[in-house]
């Protein structure tokens, strides 16, 4: 048991606990904040495993951008202080979610346990250099495809938000005349 193992265990437990807290808390904003903790500790897990770039990008993109967007959206719409039941899901939905999550966890665990039954597995490729090499050689087409997809999404969002404005304007002028 090395120091890395200890840190990994601590961060993993924290990650799982905060993830659980995020889905069970009745405070709407607390759920988002627990999600932040969950994502940050996950980044810590990556860091302990030696994948520095992945960890930092996780922190930068998820904590810095996505959670900020989530918080922004919550604050913009409805973010009461204290418990709220406005956004509670029906009991059936919760049960289905629990089943799906549980089965996914069991499946993943089974795969991992059967996969590495005979002891430790040496993993290479976590470092920034190795990741960059893989990303721009063997995985360059999926990478580019993904960026294209994001670009399409961006342009689509822009087009949708832009096309609404003249439509509203013409409606207003139509009412006036």
């Amino acid at each position: 048991m090395t120091t890395y193992d200890i840190f990994f265990s601590i961060l993993g437990v924290l990650c799982a606990a905060s993830g659980l807290a995020a889905v069970t808390t009745r405070h709407l904003m607390h759920a988002a904040l627990w999600l932040t903790v969950c994502l940050a500790t996950l980044a810590g897990c990556y860091l302990v495993l030696g994948a520095e770039l992945v960890a930092l990008v996780q922190l930068l993109v998820y904590v810095g951008a996505i959670v900020v967007l989530v918080l922004f959206a919550l604050m913009l719409t409805r973010a009461p202080i204290g418990r709220s039941h406005d956004h509670d899901t029906p009991l059936l939905q919760r049960a289905v979610a629990l089943v799906i999550a549980g089965s996914a966890a069991v499946l993943l665990g089974a795969v991992l346990i059967t996969g590495v039954r005979d002891g430790t597995v040496q993993v290479h490729g976590g470092s920034t250099n190795a990741l960059a090499r893989m990303l721009f050689t063997s995985w360059v087409w999926p990478f580019e495809l993904l960026s294209l997809l994001l670009l399409i999404a961006l342009v689509g969002a822009l087009a949708m938000s832009r096309s609404l404005v003249p439509a509203r304007a013409t409606r207003r002028t139509g009412e006036d005349s």
């Binding site: 904040l33 932040t36 940050a40 930092l56 990008v57 922190l59 930068l60 904590v63 810095g64 951008a65 959670v67 900020v68 918080l71």
Partner: peptide, 11 residues
């Protein structure tokens, strides 16, 4: 790292 931890402050 600087950019990533700077993002925590915004939270």
């Amino acid at each position: 790292w600087v950019l990533a931890v700077g993002a925590i402050g915004t939270v």
